[in-house]
Amino acid sequence: MDHRPQAWGRPRDDVYGAYDHSYLQNSGPRQATQAPIVTGTSVIAIKYKNGVVMAADNLASYGSLARFPDVKRLRVFLDSSVIGFSGDVSDMQFLDRHLTELSIDEAYEDPSSDSKAGQLNAANLHKYLQKLLYKRRNDFDPLWNQLLIAGFDGDSKPYLASVDLRGTSFTSPSLATGFGSALAQPIMRRYAATEEDAAKLSREEAVEVIKECMKVLYYRDARSLDRYSIAVVTKEGVELKEDEQLEKQSWAFAEQIKGYGTQTV
């Protein structure tokens, strides 16, 4: 046993082997993110008549471990847009800092006016994030996220779009990342299959659909949580609630499940 103070608090060499310091060296090839580590699961969003509703649960997982149960994954930008992050949480936090910087720069542009005119809208922001994520994929140093961006475009129409770690971007009346694209998207498309359908939805209906989807996701996605954040973007601004509890759950269906495949008892 090594009793020198230098060895205090360190893993014992005789038990764990000599400590590998190689990760500390700053010469040699640089290691870019090769896989997401701490992750957030689905983000879902749907457009309605006067805006967009978005939600994501408050969990950050470490593999299958529910590691951080109070991580907020929706972020407001300039009180006019919302960004929802799924995927790697450290990359989310990097983007969060970056966006704070961007919004401060943007506020400097025209300090005299307090109107939103001339500030980056959701469409501008989406374009910017698409460029950022696409550049990082070109550098083989991707930001391991899929983002949803909600707000309004240059014509003041509701805007909802997605960008992923490869810079692929698209828009749709409703969008979902991760498991949500298989579980929530079909439900949302029942209510907003087209832009015209979405333009008929009321705010209450849209919120209801989103809550229903969050419930389905909690039932079936093993990396999800029953505490979640929900944001409603309107022309007036963003209303963000970050500590919601899933309501009206019913696990009655669980009793009906009798194993899988041929098992019947």
């Binding site: 542009e109 025209d110 001339g118 980056l120 469409a123 501008n124 374009k127 910017y128 460029k131 240059g154």
Partner: peptide
């Protein structure tokens, strides 16, 4: 225009 998809503000 390429990065933000909008007209550059004239003052900028």
């Amino acid at each position: 225009r390429l990065t933000y998809g909008r007209n550059m503000p004239v003052r900028t």
